[in-house]
Simulated scan of single mutants.
Amino acid sequence: MKEKATGTSYAKIIFFGEHSVVYGKPAVAIPLYSVDVSATLERTVIGQTIHCRYFDGPISQMNDNLQGVRVLIDRLLNLFEANELSFRLTIESKVPAERGMGSSAATAIALVRAFFNLFEKPLSRLELLTLADIEEKITHGNPSGLDAATASSEAPIWFIKNQVNEQIEFHRSNLCLVIADSGIKGKTSEAVSLVHNNLIDEPDMAMPLIDQLGQIATTARQALADSDQVTLGRLMSQSQTDLAKLGVSTKALDQFCQIAITYNALGAKLTGSGLGGCMIALAKNQRDAQIIATKLRQAGATQTWIQSFKNYEFTTGEQHDNLVK
């Protein structure tokens, strides 16, 4: 066993398939390396303490809103037969809460990796996701698994609810993704209910939009493999149009998308449930991305991030997260 160990994970962004994924259509999600979470375990003489942005003190006294984390820690200690282990756990997260970026899943992934690192044990991807799901079920009730799969991945994720959850081929390029936070908390349940009501009240309008969003995700998968930047940009903007028609965009998100296009973005759209949260824009290169990010901050974005496509990897087969993450 080590004296100190760290585990890391990433924020997630839904690239394509918002809302349509709820109705069995495919979605593409990507990890954001520039928005990460780290969990560091240090062995101590006495006690078990946690230090994070929501709580600082003994793990046994953690707030109810962190129940998922507490239960996951207990399960991991049981797994390694180390319930009496004394340690200090520090969680540092760049992932903003309630922005649809998978904050809780990223925390769970980092935690599991840190414990396996501390005990110097190999960790399969299946075991990682199974353990992270312990926290996610407590925090979210019935998680799809998409957040944890993406937070733990080195590549984009292809996801179909209750059917497929896999890493997909990704062609590295000079493209960059700009993410901008509107500063408004996303309203997931309200947005999902809104789309559901549209499907009931106006099926002739809403159902074709859901179908098209699913087809867009399918086309985008191939465009990602081919690095077809023109198609990717067009699909993003079409997605934004469809999501706005479904009623889940906002004036701020619409404005951000228009600003990004004005400053040479290939495409732009909201990401996540909408009614707040973040938008994303596709830039041809780092220079364009920096300009777009600057203009978005000037327009009121509270934070921006840039993710280069050069950094993504694609792995096949059984993936082990062993000791270096």
Rank of each mutant, 00 (worst) to 15 (best):
I13N: 00
V192W: 04
K269N: 06
I50G: 01
S20M: 08
K245E: 11
F87I: 05
I138D: 05
P31E: 10
G277L: 02
K137V: 09
M279R: 00
N174I: 03
N264R: 12
S124N: 05
H19V: 06
A289Q: 04
F116C: 05
C257E: 11
W158C: 04
I157R: 04
Y10L: 00
Q61G: 04
A281I: 13
E92P: 03
S308V: 07
L213A: 12
T304I: 03
E120V: 08
K137D: 01
K325G: 09
A39V: 02
N174T: 15
A149L: 03
K137S: 07
I109Q: 00
T316Y: 04
S86A: 15
P208F: 13
R75E: 15
S144C: 02
H51D: 12
T90H: 04
A105W: 02
V45F: 06
A29R: 07
E120C: 08
V248R: 07
E135L: 09
A260C: 04
A191C: 00
T294C: 08
M279N: 03
K245L: 14
T107Q: 12
H196W: 07
A268S: 15
A105L: 01
P203C: 09
K2Y: 10
N65M: 13
I184Q: 13
E154N: 15
S38K: 14
A206Y: 01
T250R: 02
A220D: 05
L126N: 13
R113N: 06
I280Y: 07
T231L: 15
Y10T: 13
T188P: 09
A149V: 01
Y23H: 11
N83H: 10
D36S: 13
I73N: 11
R221V: 11
E169T: 10
E18R: 08
Q303A: 13
R297D: 01
E81H: 15
Y23T: 01
I14C: 03
G233W: 13
C52K: 02
F115W: 05
E18A: 07
A217E: 05
R234E: 14
T218P: 03
E318T: 14
L323M: 11
G274P: 05
K284Q: 10
I306D: 12
Y263W: 11
N162P: 00
D147P: 02
H171S: 15
S237L: 07
Q61L: 13
C52E: 00
I157C: 04
G57Q: 06
V45P: 00
K25Y: 11
I291S: 05
V95D: 05
F116L: 02
Q290A: 12
H196C: 05
L177K: 02
E190W: 02
